[in-house]
Design a protein around this nucleic acid. Sequence first.
DNA 1: ACATGGCACAAGGCTACCTTGTGACCCCAC
DNA 2: GTGGGGTCACAAGGTAGCCTTGTGCCATGT
Lengths: 307, 307
Amino acid sequence: MLGPHVPELRALELLVLVSETGSLSAAAAELGITQQAASSRLRTMESLVGASLVDRSRRGSLLTPTGELLVQWSGAVLAAAAQMDAGIAALRADRRGHLTIAASLTIAEHLLPGWLVALRARQIHAGLTPTEVTMTATNSERVESLVRTGEVDLGFVEGPDAPADLHHRLVGTDTLVVVVGPKHPWVTKPSRRVSATTLAATPLVVREPGSGTRMVLDRALQDLGTVGPALELSSTAAVRAAVAAGAGPAAVGAHAIREDLALGRLVKINVAGLDLTRRLHAVWRGGVQPPYGAARDLVSWAADHPA
Amino acid sequence: MLGPHVPELRALELLVLVSETGSLSAAAAELGITQQAASSRLRTMESLVGASLVDRSRRGSLLTPTGELLVQWSGAVLAAAAQMDAGIAALRADRRGHLTIAASLTIAEHLLPGWLVALRARQIHAGLTPTEVTMTATNSERVESLVRTGEVDLGFVEGPDAPADLHHRLVGTDTLVVVVGPKHPWVTKPSRRVSATTLAATPLVVREPGSGTRMVLDRALQDLGTVGPALELSSTAAVRAAVAAGAGPAAVGAHAIREDLALGRLVKINVAGLDLTRRLHAVWRGGVQPPYGAARDLVSWAADHPA
DNA sequence: ACATGGCACAAGGCTACCTTGTGACCCCAC
DNA sequence: GTGGGGTCACAAGGTAGCCTTGTGCCATGT
């Protein structure tokens, strides 16, 4: 829950613009509002935070140290918001004549928005008009089929290997982590370590077949003889909740549960000798190179900037 | 600049709460507003984003896939906002009877808010009432003096070494990066590499004396015979702007210029054989252990969770 | 001296939000 | 079957916040 002293995004944006332009009226002009509106918005923000943020003078405005601090913090918030903006823009974009992408949920959530922001920034920096991108988020299996049928220009999938019949390029890897609820018996094991065979013999909370996470897990356990799942759910959030409630162990992407681990809602279990590496690939049809200029840029940026 | 389709923080928060509680009215209750207000807020958010985010049913509400995606993105935005909230709370807190902290600017900006959020979460998780923290952000020199005079309970400083006459504990390290503007002659050097002596013989854009960044730089260059600075500025933002405009090279913390590097506003230069490591220390007066329970928790959490 | 640029104050209108009141619907328990 | 608890939507009304227009002041610079 957010306290009552946090300004809204638009107010933070204004403060950052004031810091960059050194003037209230210039910042207002950038936002397309009047100077008076900016002045008042800033005032309410100052009374909200409880400190003066801007030193107004007759020839411009300079931030106070507190203001600078807030600008830094706003930077992080607005960077995340910019990623969301890119994601929303991709969800909204008109589907014709633009670059269409399908991505697995993990990639759509955590990686793709950042890539889109970077692509856009680079295009603007190069004097181009930014490409409009349309994004579909679905599981890896369906992403591959969308690429095969040509419904999208470019796909991003996750799984143990690259798909065989599509051109691809590795754009990242991550590793699944095995977690249990805080009251699970494994929590008391020495160094919280269990063997791969123990894991394979335990009913797990898993994602639906066709998801990259599920494929990696099935592949890792296939030689150990699997037992049926305890529960099969179609979103990571549902898996997290089920595991926290004690439904059984699960293997999930590390970033999705960082906060749960810190708060003790979930506990990480070490599993010896099990390869839970998930490979993230860009995939496309046709030539060896990704199709368009923008798609090519996006793929090479992604490949060069692992998470 | 943020597009017009990004909801405000409160709206995002509502969506996350709906996702967690599975009910519009429950989410509304948590926020202290009526169910109708929540319903309308959600509606405007949906028309803003241009997609339906929640499937309303007679017994609860479930997010659509798009809604889930937005929740994930909101997670990043709200996490950053929570850090800002913690920071603002520390700026606002009443100074008596609470834990008072002074921190160098870098730490106050990038690290401390996260630590405060974690401390608060752990205290709540342990059933304690969270400690109110008061924070002052200033340069390392003044932080040390505030700790010495007892005006604050705990300090966080950065510099080449730990301060000699205070108890301390290492809570992180980072490395300064040498950058120049995109049109600087060094950009064309092979592998963008210059020698330490070349750097020492060049007038630099520096922070004011007393800042940790400055101390690290002075210390690293002291045996090479320094030339006077090109410009002396009292904030990292000012340094970044000056360097980008071509005022000369500067050494700055890596995280502060990540975006500038990606956009090509600044270019990183490799300097051979120069130790620009900055050590981040918690410092306190009195016993070998940090004073209070909360302060001790904070320090050990910080030490155990490097950035 | 006068234009320019920067900010604050004041008044007015509009919009958007929130609250109260109400209705429809479903599930469950009795 | 029927009433109670729960969910959400619709409607009406008030309020408050925000934005715009209009104005004044002051410093700088030409």
